[in-house]
Amino acid sequence: MIVSFNNVRKYYGSWPALEKVDLRLEEGEFVVISGPSGAGKTTLFRHVWMGDLPTTGTVEVVGFSSDGIRSGDLPLLRRKLGIVFQDFRLLPERTVFENVALPLQVTGTPPKAVRRRVFELLADMELSHRRNSFPNELSGGEQQRVAIARAMVAHPVLLLADEPTGNLDPEVSRKVIDLLVGINRAGTAVMLATHDPRQVPAGAARFVYLDGGRIVDPSYWDGYDQL
């Protein structure tokens, strides 16, 4: 088990963003988290990479527990995760190569090994020709692929993708989802948050529905009306 939420509650002031969340994720699994806007998907993800800590309950991720995690452990936890956001969050003043190389450079990987790994990954993602471009010179789909490359470069155990297709048109979105499915087939666990679970092929993933901060039974979920 690489992720485990045990009766997690999260309050922002008196506002409940997560209520009694229990969730487990096995190594190599693909979990899709769906739910309407404000359901708590981003909040749930922030708890996985421990950008937030639960108000009550515990979160355990790749051997680190939210109970008594020290700030010195946070980098060690995050090196085992790859994180992708809806708005890409690439550093605008760096080239594609530099953006993708960052997670390796912060751990002191020798430059030769960094080049080898980044070139290999950019080739896999059909971005080799773009390696010296800056993010603002790329299309949205290309930027998101660069962000995914950055998330995957250090061989994470778990890839977290919070609405990675939110800013992309349907055609490009499908390519990004296919990429995530491929990454999962190659052995990496994936957590994907999306408004629209129909993007993901039914057999490829386990589906979890959030509403008002609670995990709900999908058969009662009427969120499709809101899509």
């Binding site: 980098p75 936890l77 912060v106 751990t107």
Partner: peptide, 16 residues
């Protein structure tokens, strides 16, 4: 702020 956030998300140690 973005640089700080990304650095911390990719697991850079605080001193780095």
């Amino acid at each position: 702020a973005l640089t700080l956030e990304i650095m911390s998300i990719v697991g850079a140690p605080a001193w780095f």
